[in-house]
Amino acid sequence: MSRVSNEVIRLTDLHAFYGESHVLHGIDLDVHEGELVTLLGRNGAGRTTTLRAIVGLIGHRTGSIMIKGEETIKSPPHTIAHLGLGYCPEERGIFASLNVEENLMLPPQVGSKGMSVEEIYEMFPNLAERRKSQGTRLSGGEQQMLALARILRTGADILLLDEITEGLAPVIVDRLGEVLAELKARGFTVVLVEQNFHFARAIADRHFIIDQGHLAAVIAADEVEAKADVFDDFLSV
């Protein structure tokens, strides 16, 4: 039972609603400390909603969301991040009225082991060069780096990353792959919503396949070859 003890996220029968529409229909999943997992699925399957529900951005949700053993289903959104969560939204969420450095420094500390600004600029040299530029003047790739860098500084040890490779050039996607591998080596827990399966496959420990608001399958990294048909069923358009 050692797996249970290092469980950092556990969703039990998670339902989520946008107004009248019922988006998640009872998701059960768990993520262990230091693990990198992906949420795969078609557009609209409920992957983004799952992340948003975890960070508290979905007003109407039921079931249970345990983070490091603490129930957060009823917590106000601003208290959830302080359990050590860092969230990178699909649209990146770079603030136009803040410059690069202000964007980087914006999220409050949520843990003690955050990367220093120097370390971050070493990891993302482009950001250092453009620290006084308006946040949204950066290229798409740089904005993505900034959105990631911003949560690394806070000391969050659970990273929820939504479509970080979307719309980026292959060379930048490769760089993000290296960064994720490094983060994993440093012991971060990562939940990755990803459309790019090749990207996800190279770095993930387990894949959760979400379909129509349900958890359709869980596939460990070493089963990917054997269960290729499952991916075809749920991911092919």
Binding site: P76, A81, H82, F95, P107
Partner: peptide, 25 residues
């Protein structure tokens, strides 16, 4: 100031700011 950065960010996207752990209310 930092409070100013929160206020500007809160003007733009209060829900994301709150998800970062800032007490937006």
């Amino acid at each position: 100031t930092k409070v100013g950065a929160y206020l500007r960010a809160g003007t733009e996207n209060p829900t994301l700011l709150q998800a970062f752990g800032v007490n937006v209310p």
